[in-house]
Structure formats: structure tokens, C-alpha cells
Amino acid sequence: MRGPLDYLGRWPLRLWLGLVGLFLYLPLVALVAFSFNDSRRTTVWRGFSLTWYRELFADTELLTAFGNSLVIAAASTLISLILGTAAALLLWRFRFAGKAALEAALGLPIVVPEICLGVAFLVFFTAIVPWPGELPWPFSLGAIIIAHTTFSFSFVALVVRARLAGFDGALAEAARDLGASEWRIFRDIMVPHLVPGLVAGALLAFTLSLDDFVITFFTSGPDTITFPIKVYSMVRFSVTPAVNAASTLLILLTAALTALALWLQGADIAKQAA
């Protein structure tokens, strides 16, 4: 028996959900399935094979690109975490002239179209402050790391601010009353409260960096290929199951990161409930 608000139980809505689900997932499922196809073609199933994965792991350029992507993501996440948390703390704690302007500026990287940020960095790193090309790895990736940090630290600040909003100021006052210094309060009281926000922010920054194509496209040089850039050139060149295989690996990585985030947040929710 169904109540009047059990919309999920109604067949037209179920059908609709099914069709939207098919639309969202059919391409992805087909992509993953054909990465195991024993044929160059990506439409006709010939049999199960790991050929394309073997080819993938033999492609040193692709592996380098993948390594670059991970290094860029890790570095930009770390810097974003520091900058974003600092900005969140600043806005949470102080009242000062120009605060509204800072808040607006901090929100800008989230809304400015990627293409605009991309060309701004292209101009900046070629005409204004040319990034030296012959730096040793990983410093050669610096321009991309800076670009990624710029758009992801605003997201980190957003997430950490949301978490800070739930902080009970009396806790900090209690710590101070008990003799804790500014730094001890931060380390012993604030950071433990912020951990879920920091984890969520870090995962967001990491995923955004790994996901980014447009801004990297404009910032990278011939020697600083990232995984999405490499996949893009493969797609442009030809559609082969090797692209499917590479994509499948990245999907797995993203799914694992998402699962990790959910698991951590789930653990956090469970802790709060207990």
C-alpha cells in the first residue's frame, strides 16, 4: 500500500528515473565494457581481452602523463588546503575593512568560466611571468600547479567555512580560560573539529585537479603533459579501445576517491550520532 507522497512508487516516475539513469550510465558502461574488447572496434563485441590494458602499461608517455597528473593533484591539494583553511579562518574570525570584497574575490574562481581562467594563465605564464621551461621535474609542473591551486582553494575555503559555521566558540573560550595559547587552541580544539571539512576539501581539490582539462590545456607546455591532455590527444587522433582502458582506470580512481570521501563522512556522521 502506498501513501500519496510515495512518488518513488509511481510507475511513470520510475520509468522516468530509469530513462534518465540509462542516459547517464549507458555511455559510461559501454565505455568500460569495450575497454575489454578483443578488437580495435569499439562497437562490436569480439570477446574478453586485456590487450588494451597491456598496451596502456607499455605506453611510457601515458604513464608519465598519469604520474604528472598525480603530482600536480597532490601538490595543488596541499597548497589549496593551507590557503583555503587560512582564508576560511580569517573570514570566520575577523571583521575588517574590505571583508566583503575579499569574500567576493574568493568566490570568483568558482564562477569565472574555465576558458577565461585558462587564457588568463596562458597570457600570464608566457608574456608576463614566463615559466622557465628547463626546470627539473617536478618544478616544470609549477605553472599548472599554480593554476590548479587558484581554482581549487576557493572550493576548499567554501567547504571549511561551512564546517567552521558549526563550531561552538565557547569551546575556544573554555580552552583559553584553561590557559591555552592561540596556537594550542588551533591545534587542540579547532583542527579536530575541522578534520571532516579538511578531508572533504582535500578530496574535492584533488578531484578537481585530476579532472581539469581546459585550464591545463592552456597552461601546459610540450613537456608537461597531464593525463587528460594525453587522453584528449588520443581522442583527437583516433578512437581506440586504449582510450577506453585509460578512461576506465581514471573512473576507478575517481570512484575510489568518492567512496573514500563517503566512507570518511559516514564515519564522521556515525561518530556524531554516537
Partner: peptide, 18 residues
């Protein structure tokens, strides 16, 4: 959310194949 978190390039490529 899962497609939302999946790389934009990969999603576009997946659609191309379809």
C-alpha cells in the same frame, strides 16, 4: 553524483562512442 565526479573529458568521449 558518480557521473558528476567522473572526468569531463571521459564523459564526453563516452558519449562520442555512443
Amino acid at each position: 553524483m558518480l557521473p558528476f565526479w567522473t572526468n569531463l573529458l571521459i564523459r564526453t568521449y563516452a558519449l562520442m562512442a555512443i
